[in-house]
Design a protein around this nucleic acid. Structure first.
Length: 244
DNA sequence: TGATGATCATTA
DNA sequence: TAATGATCATCA
């Protein structure tokens, strides 16, 4: 096999990067099957973000403070995601959503995972079955990336991807939380919702800052302005998904 | 030290 | 403004 374990960064390393770039034929066309997507994931497993960025001719930021979505966007490009910023699955042809997840040295998630915006304006969702959240999570490609701040961003490596759909038990957990939270919203109790609610799912602010507002409906059905919020998966849930 | 609430960048 | 991509920073 190749020389993956060397401590030198030299001509050899550069050759590997070029080789990798050919393997994934950048820019990547959208994968046409899950198998094709998984092959691409295997090709980048164990590689560093620095290597992958170089293959894309992208600069690596010093840190993620002002580039929070950088890793996710890099890996989307590498793997051929085509949804861009649309409210669609990242890989539209095969209806797969992709989530990069920062992990510690044991592969445990370091952060919660944003799923989607909480619908607040009028368009209340009729049922779990029809919910945006459920559709988003129907098929997810989890891509772990070393995320401890001790490791310089360029040196952080990509882990083994997991293509996942919720098990029956997981779906029931998600459903229970979603129904509880949705009922509160329908009852006009949005402002009573805190991130402490929900065992696997939570609602938290999702905005540029705490001054952001969006339209919603109050307890009496009147129009109000409130904070935009998003659904997030707790790290403990994602840990079970990744590690069992 | 982990989780909550706040925040950053980009696109349409 | 609202969707996408998330991580930061502070406090219990």
């Amino acid at each position: 096999m190749g020389n993956g374990g060397g401590s030198e960064h030299s001509k050899h390393e550069t050759a590997n990067i070029r080789y990798h770039a050919r393997m994934i034929r950048l820019p990547s066309p959208p994968p046409q099957s899950e198998a094709e997507l998984l092959l691409r994931c295997q090709a980048i497993a164990g590689r560093s973000l620095g290597e992958l960025a170089q293959a894309c001719a992208l600069a690596v930021p010093e840190n993620l403070q002002r580039h929070k979505g950088w890793s996710g966007q890099l890996l989307e490009q590498i793997l051929g995601a085509d949804a861009r910023s649309l409210p669609e699955p990242d890989f539209t042809a095969i209806a797969v959503e992709m989530k990069t997840i920062p992990v510690d040295h044991q592969g445990r998630p370091l952060e919660s995972t944003y799923v989607c915006t909480v619908p607040l304006d009028g368009g209340m969702e009729a049922s779990w079955e029809a919910s945006w959240l459920r559709r988003k999570l129907a098929r997810v490609l989890w891509l772990p990336v070393e995320g401890t701040r001790e490791i310089p961003l360029a040196e952080r490596r990509v882990g083994t991807a997991v293509l996942w759909s919720p098990s029956n038990a997981q779906e029931q957990q998600l459903r229970q939380d979603w129904e509880e939270l949705s009922e509160m919203i329908c009852m006009g109790e949005l402002e009573q919702i805190t991130a402490r609610l929900g065992t696997v799912l939570q609602i938290r602010p999702k905005a540029a800052d705490s001054h952001s507002r969006c339209n919603s409906v109050g307890a009496g059905g009147e129009a109000i302005r409130t904070h935009p919020r998003g659904y997030y998966l707790r790290a403990s849930f994602t840990r079970q998904v990744l590690l069992g």
